[in-house]
Amino acid sequence: MENTPPLGVGGLVIINYGAGNIQSIKFALKRLGVEAILTDNETEIRNADKVIFPGVGEASSAMQKLKASGLDKVIPTLKQPVLGICLGMQLLCNSSEEGNTKGLGVFDVDVIRYSNEVKVPQIGWNQIQNLKSGLFKNVSENEFMYLVHSYYAPLCEGTIASSEYGIQYSSALQKGNFYGVQFHPEKSSTAGEQILKNFLNLKSKI
């Protein structure tokens, strides 16, 4: 990890659109030896090797911010590996019940709220299961990840990891070059770091 070479031209971009705390992701990547560029600039995003799409907060106001900057048109057409984290993953879905907003429509699933049969928000470490992607290389079945959320994506065709909280839901999604994780890999100890490393090691096609 100490001798990690820097990424090639284009590098790693974190989309900065004013939705929540991105410091943690930046720091987690720095611990892995990778300096990320924070930007909302279309050209920089399109030229990046990899793109991280973060997000903490409320879905409809985050969508407003994406629309205001035109990023709602840019993100779904990206060709390189994209990783949506938490709200970022939810915004890549068709819609969200939170503020009744449309999403970016990459993942064909609608995000809905947990029922009051369980405590909402779900806060803490939950296990991920049925791992189906290279994103989980060297990550064990039933590994714990840190989550904090009130809305979830139900199981669907794009589900590459599931978790149980009253019901089974999608804790990670994938469609082509788009990946989404409901948990926070940047806050999920060494197992989360492994997932970030796996994402960074994906082959970029641009």
């Binding site: 892995l32 060297n138 197992a191 492994q194 490393k197 090691n201």
Partner: peptide, 10 residues
């Protein structure tokens, strides 16, 4: 969990 050579970031 230890990172092996083949999965170093490149």
């Amino acid at each position: 969990r230890r990172m092996t050579n083949d999965e170093k970031i490149n």
